[in-house]
Amino acid sequence: MKSLALKGLTALAIVGAAGLYITRPQTVDTDTFAALTPDPAHGAQVFTASGCASCHMAEGSKTPLILSGGQRLASPFGTFVVPNISSDPEAGIGGWTLDQFASAVTKGTSPEGQHYFPAFPYAAYQKMTDQDVVDLWAYMQTLPADQTPSQPHEVGFPFNIRTALGGWKLLFTPKDWVMPADTPQLERGRYLVEAQAHCGECHTPRNTLGGLQHDAWLSGAPDPSGRGKVPDITPATLGWSMGDIAYYLESGFTPDYDSAGGHMAHVVENMAQLSASDREAIAAYLLALPN
């Protein structure tokens, strides 16, 4: 009897350890990144397309390049307070290495080896090319330092246990593309939508555990604020032409000249800074979505 219990416990411990092993925080391969030459000018484009400032600048800030953090993101699991990622070595991430930065953005792993919460959209950024990540880091080091300390999240038990996020990541952050793309334009659109601008984080519904429902990709979701709805942008519902979508992303105007609001206002400000061909590529991607 005693030995049976012991066996059971040992088995449990092994399963548990294996579980923790496969769900342990992942980091990037140092050599791959060290071999790349950074291009900070291109990094600025990556930064804009990825909307880093939309979350990391102070609430309502007029200086979006000061990444002092402090915005509060409401979710069903609690409120996340976005951290300072300015170049300040103490309050921000100025003292980090390239590897630490790349592991944070593409693996959701902190320099201390902990999992980040998926409110930081690394589920999208993990699809970025290594070169883009290297360029992004080079650019971000040129941005101003700010000494505002990061604030703790207001997330209660059990969602505040970062170890548990390993399993979550394994289940809900597949690295595969959601959509096929068989032309260079669709590939570019897919890269912008799925790897950088993280359109799916807002426009795709989530399951009860907060994982994106990839089979209902971009088909609309309740607004995380609890009021209103992030619209369905699949082609049959949206009913817009390629020109309509590209113009909206540039100007914020819908085909009937209403103007974008809510969180989409920031997205439009970012998309307006991309090239016209990039906005068309995003439009082409949306028009190719299944209904």
Partner: peptide, 19 residues
Amino acid sequence: AMGPLGGACKSCHETYRTP
């Protein structure tokens, strides 16, 4: 002139209108 006008609409809708 559309740019500044659209910017004025957008900056109010961003904060004061629910989606």
